[in-house]
């Protein structure tokens, strides 16, 4: 069995976000980059299946040179090899274009049984790349998995997914794509030997030439801004302007509570 995990690098959640001089992106100088936290669950799930079935796990990312760190982290967690699609022409792609590029590359790799992805990229919170990838390849998907049971013999996977108001169990034939919900597992920390080993694991680098070929069928127009359908015009950092009326209830809890109830009724008109 062959499993592929798509991962993305993202600014640390603690990072202070400032608009860049063009106003359409963020200043990246002082940002610490991490593996998208949701993707850790995806990698962990794939590695657990590998430990049970001996499957091979390939990690794929699209992103700038620095993204290799996210790739190596996933390899240190147990991935076998990596594919890094990188080049300036891949910068600024929207989910539509990303879906085409990632989907095309996966088709070219061939013989993948399962694809895992995070539920969303915490940066954009778009949660649409994985589904666009599944559509591009023409395979079924189950999103927000809280449980995954693989049956290699019958080439099917049973997925319990979070749905509105409950959960649903779905059975998908290989090849299939699954996005995982937080809490499906406990992602492992990469061990020091794991990190050392990850540096030596094979990693294919794909530039625009690598992906231009007939083999993959992606042309220049499908890349970057040209292949995208939406773009970020501007970014504003909202200032928090709230009224900050804090009552002291340390000595007189009941009085403060009565005052708050009154404010909510009469001033905020909310209860």
């Amino acid at each position: 069995m062959k499993i592929l995990v798509i991962v993305r690098q993202t600014p640390d959640t603690e990072a202070k976000i400032q608009a860049n001089s063009d106003g359409n992106g963020i200043k990246t100088d002082d940002i610490k980059w991490i593996l998208n936290p949701f993707d850790e669950y995806a990698v962990e799930e794939a590695v657990q299946i590998k430990e049970k079935t001996g499957a091979e796990v390939v990690i794929l990312t699209v992103g700038a040179d620095r993204s290799v760190d996210a790739l190596r982290q996933a390899l240190a967690m147990g991935g076998d090899s990596g594919v890094h699609i990188k080049d300036e022409s891949f910068a600024d792609m929207d989910p539509y274009a990303l879906g085409k590029v990632i989907g095309s590359k996966i088709k070219a790799l061939g013989d993948i049984d399962l694809i895992f992805a995070g539920k969303k990229w915490i940066d954009e919170e778009s949660s649409q790349v994985p589904i666009q990838v599944a559509e591009e390849i023409g395979i079924p998907q189950a999103t927000l998995a809280s449980k995954v049971e693989v049956d290699d013999a019958s080439k099917t996977v049973k997925v319990t997914s979070v749905i509105e108001g409950g959960e649903e169990v779905r059975e998908l034939k290989f090849p299939a794509l699954i996005t995982v919900e937080q809490g499906i597992n406990e992602p492992r920390y990469a061990s020091l030997p794991g990190i050392m080993k990850a540096k030596k694991k094979p990693c294919e680098e794909v530039g625009p030439d690598g992906i231009n070929g007939d083999e993959i069928g992606i042309s220049g127009e499908a890349l970057g801004a040209a292949g995208s359908r939406i773009s970020v015009n501007s970014i504003e950092i909202p200032t928090i302007s709230r009224s900050l009326k804090v009552l002291d209830g340390r000595a007189e809890a009941v009085q403060a509570s009565a005052d708050l109830a009154k404010l909510l009724r009469e001033e905020a008109k909310i209860i």
């Binding site: 009224s243 009326k245 804090v246 009552l247 002291d248 340390r250 809890a253 403060a256 905020a268």
Partner: peptide
Amino acid sequence: CDYGICGD
């Protein structure tokens, strides 16, 4: 926040 109570 808009409103708050500091207390237990």
